[in-house]
Simulated assay, not measured.
Amino acid sequence: MGIEQGLISFLMMNMDIIYLLDLAGTAVFAISGVQVAGQMRMDPFGATVLAAVTAIGGGTIRDAILDVGPAFWVHDPVYLTVIILTSMLTILFANRNHRMPPILLPLADAAGLALFTVLGTQKALAYGAPGMTAVVMGVITGVAGGIIRDLLASRVPMVLQKDIYATASVLGGVVYTGALLIGITEGWAMLFAMTGVFVLRMAAVHWHLRLPMFVLKHHRE
């Protein structure tokens, strides 16, 4: 059985689990969107908009590129419901406690990155995309929403800075596809990949790990 057929069989047998994971990723990315909105002193509507683009922006772009029809959330309002409820609860929690724990944003962001990277890669493979393309789709799913969020908040997107962020997403996609190629079962492949993304991202946050910067030297006549 090929990887594509194996993935389809796995998805059919574990549809409820995959769906719940997708909703969980939507919620944690929505939290990170509200967190950024709070830092920029936006109103609740602005916070909900940032939550929405962060949570479903990457998946929407992925589905458009893969040409799989309307984006996943168009015919399933549960995603929008999760975003709205998560935004309201996060805002209420922040108002009641005056401030959120500083670690909450990186934790939520890392968890969402790990989940969406693997789920995006998985969906691309299930639709017959080659491994390298699937990795790119996973990265788009994981980071594109955050890019849109940061642009709307007038910030330099995190993925374009020296922090290890997109690199962690690439690692997750490579680990996931590589694990499937060598015969590791789908569930373990997902676990290894998500753990790799989350651990690398949080290690980068904790120890301030950076990629080397590219700086052009001034040309001298």
Rank of each mutant, 00 (worst) to 15 (best):
L92P: 00
I91G: 02
S87W: 07
L92I: 11
P102Q: 07
T117H: 01
R96M: 15
S87I: 08
P102L: 09
I84M: 14
P70N: 11
R96Q: 14
L107T: 10
T86H: 03
I83Q: 04
I83F: 06
T86G: 09
A114F: 09
P102T: 10
P70H: 11
I103L: 12
A71R: 05
H98C: 10
G112S: 05
D109V: 08
D109E: 11
P101L: 14
A110Y: 06
M100T: 14
A110T: 10
I83K: 06
F72S: 06
V82K: 05
T90D: 06
M88I: 15
Y79M: 02
A111F: 13
L113F: 04
I103W: 11
T86E: 03
M88Y: 11
H98P: 00
R96K: 14
S87Q: 09
L115E: 00
M100P: 01
L85R: 02
L80M: 14
R99P: 00
L107H: 01
W73C: 03
A111T: 15
T86F: 09
A94C: 07
I84G: 05
H75P: 00
T81C: 13
D76I: 00
L115K: 00
L104E: 10
T86K: 05
I83G: 07
L105R: 12
L85F: 13
M88F: 15
A108R: 07
P102H: 09
P77H: 11
H98N: 12
D109P: 08
W73E: 04
A110K: 01
L85M: 13
L92N: 06
I84H: 01
M100E: 10
F93N: 11
V74Y: 13
D76W: 02
R99W: 11
W73N: 04
I103D: 02
D109L: 10
S87H: 05
T81I: 14
I103V: 14
D109Q: 08
N95E: 15
T86C: 09
P106C: 08
R99C: 09
A110G: 15
H98Y: 14
N97L: 15
T81G: 15
T117S: 06
T86V: 15
M100G: 07
A114Y: 09
V82M: 07
I103P: 00
F72G: 04
A71Y: 01
T117G: 00
N95K: 13
F116M: 08
L107Q: 02
V78N: 06
G112P: 03
L113I: 05
G112K: 03
Y79S: 03
L80P: 09
L105A: 06
P101V: 11
F72I: 12
D76F: 01
F116A: 08
L113H: 04
N97T: 14
A108P: 06
V74L: 15
T86P: 08
I103K: 04
G112A: 08
A108K: 06
I91L: 15
L89C: 13
Y79L: 02
L89H: 04
N97A: 13
A71L: 04
Y79Q: 04
A94F: 12
A114H: 09
L113A: 07
D109A: 10
L104G: 13
H75T: 13
F72D: 03
A94H: 12
